[in-house]
Design a protein around this nucleic acid. Sequence first.
DNA 1: ACATTGACCTGAGAGC
DNA 2: TGCTCTCAGGTCAATG
Length: 265
Amino acid sequence: MPELPDVETWKRYVESNALHQEISGVRIDASRMLQDVSKAELRRSLEGDRFSSARRHGKYLFVGTERNGWLVLHFGMTGFLSYGSGTEPDPYPPSLVIRFANECRLAGMWPRRLGRISLTSDPAAFVEAKGLGPDALVSGRGADAFVALFRGRGGSLKSALMDQKFLAGLGNVYTDEVLFQARLHPRARLSDLGEADLKRLYNSMRHVLDTAIEREADPERLPGTWLLPHRNRDAGCPRCGGALQRIKIGGRTTYACPACQPMPA
DNA sequence: ACATTGACCTGAGAGC
DNA sequence: TGCTCTCAGGTCAATG
């Protein structure tokens, strides 16, 4: 479930491990994950170049090279990266292996093959072309900008937060967490929410994302008072002890506490 | 405009 | 043990 905090963690991982070394070889075993780029093109762009920076927008990671544009990675449901000497066997067959002159390599693994690998000359243009909304963290332009996003939009709260064209970065799991902490029901209609609700939502979102990033998106390290560690269990609401609701919204399993997250009147 | 559903994909876990 | 089934969920397209 790589969502914004997970991807941010991978971004930092790349920054601290994989920059400034000459790329000596690229192996791709993921034709159907490639988007608008061929294997040959990808190899030609990366080989001999060096990564120099990394950026993130929503759930997309951009790894910039010195000369030939940006590698774009999307982790789908299960994708992850692994940097190292490669002497230990990989847990899954890597779809992407980038070897460096220092004998280490960055491997990308997508056990369920739902990820995306692409190339762009301009991350901002890529984001634009994808129609992605503002990044959920960069919406650090403040609560007012966040609240303004909701003007003129209807529908359910959870659907809006999960819509990457509306706001980029939240997925199923963290959306539930944000709503739980904001004490808002996922099925609440946007039209029923007041400014105070939206500001509270903004604060919860910031808190959830900041905390999760600080803990490297490791579920084991997230506070037990959060909803997240109690998903998929019969455990009750970590706040009131009552039974959690398990419903489907947009085909996604949604957890909520009906007592702590009442529908707006 | 918004919601719902299914396809994509395959590992994990449950149940028998 | 090993088989079968269901579920997980990001994104996209199709349908209501």
